[in-house]
Amino acid sequence: MLVLLPPSEGKAPSGRGTALKLESLSLPGLTEARRAVLDELAELCAGDEEKAREVLGLSEGLRGEIAKNTQLRSAGARPAGEIYTGVLYDALDLASLDTAAKRRASRSLLVFSGLWGAVRVTDRIPSYRCSMGVRLPGLGALGAHWRTPMAAALPEAAGDGLVLDLRSSAYTGAWKPKGEVAGRTATVRVLHAPTRKVVSHFNKATKGRIVRSLLAAGAAPAGPAELVETLRDLGYEVEVQAPARAGTAWALDVLVNEVH
């Protein structure tokens, strides 16, 4: 099972340990594309701060985030699972999983990123600020920048098992499962059960809990149909929109009664 996650806007501070080693990150086929973004982002943020703020789409109050990107090569690196914070990652709570579940997380979780393309939660990265929606002056839109290298790297990472796609819309454009891989992919929406409306904050928390439940249970559904049964066994209320034709993803709706 491969679980595709969005990053978080907020991130924990960089560590005090060894600096980034770009070549040590998972999915080595993305290395050159990562280097291109890293180089331009660091140069942009070391220059005209106002221009960098506009390119990164930061409010005046977040101007201080620009400094992070000037130190990407020298700042201490931490596992990505510690860097990403926020509602989804709080609910997932990787640190409190047992040893076996942590091993499963290291094999199955893949976090998408405007800067790194995608990383595993054990990959050591510094804190940064760069969403997939950014358009760098040289490289252009990052979603488009990642499309070609992702198309080569991600099918291999997906292997022959289930792909559980929990990414937000900003990150889905960087890689869309196609053909046979799409047929064993499932996407998830979280709906307020009484109204059948999509919820926002609770959407992230529920997705984090779903991933945690699967990891803690040692679940290994072979495909979307098995995932539905597994989630129901774990106590989730799931409605299924099976694909109308082969080679398209399954859409699952998880219903919740509380909206926080």
Rank of each mutant, 00 (worst) to 15 (best):
G17A: 06
H260I: 02
G10V: 04
A219C: 10
V190G: 00
C130V: 02
V198N: 10
V163E: 13
G218Q: 14
E54S: 14
L115E: 00
L44R: 08
A77F: 07
G17K: 03
Y89C: 06
L109T: 11
K11I: 01
A95Q: 12
V240K: 05
G183I: 05
S26V: 02
A220K: 11
L166E: 09
G117E: 01
H192I: 06
K51D: 11
R107Q: 15
T122F: 02
G143S: 06
M132Q: 10
E226D: 15
A225W: 00
K21V: 14
D98F: 07
T122Q: 15
S127M: 01
T85M: 04
A46Y: 01
P79N: 10
L139D: 04
A12R: 11
A80N: 08
L72K: 04
H192L: 13
K204E: 12
E50Y: 06
L41C: 05
G159A: 09
L97Y: 11
A12E: 09
R120S: 14
A153T: 09
P126V: 03
A80V: 14
P194K: 12
V188M: 10
H260V: 08
D233Q: 14
P126E: 04
H260P: 15
E82I: 03
P194E: 10
D123S: 04
A186C: 09
G161L: 07
V37S: 05
T248C: 12
E237H: 13
D90K: 15
A216Q: 15
P155T: 09
V238I: 13
A19I: 02
D93C: 02
L227T: 05
E43G: 07
D48N: 15
L20Q: 03
L252S: 07
A205F: 07
R184D: 08
A217N: 13
V228Q: 04
R147Q: 13
K102G: 03
P243E: 10
W250K: 08
G81C: 06
A105V: 12
G133T: 03
V134C: 01
R16D: 15
R232D: 09
V199H: 09
I66C: 02
S24N: 10
H260R: 13
G223Q: 05
P155D: 13
E229A: 15
C45D: 09
K204F: 09
G161P: 04
R189C: 00
V163K: 11
L41H: 03
R73I: 00
L110S: 04
Y84R: 05
G15Y: 00
E9W: 05
L136Y: 01
V163S: 10
A153M: 12
G247M: 14
K68G: 00
T185S: 10
E54I: 13
L88K: 07
A152C: 07
R184T: 10
G17I: 08
E32Y: 03
P155R: 03
P28N: 07
H201A: 14
K207R: 15
Q241P: 00
R104Y: 04
G76R: 04
V134D: 01
L97T: 12
Y89H: 07
P221M: 11
L58Q: 09
I66F: 01
L231H: 14
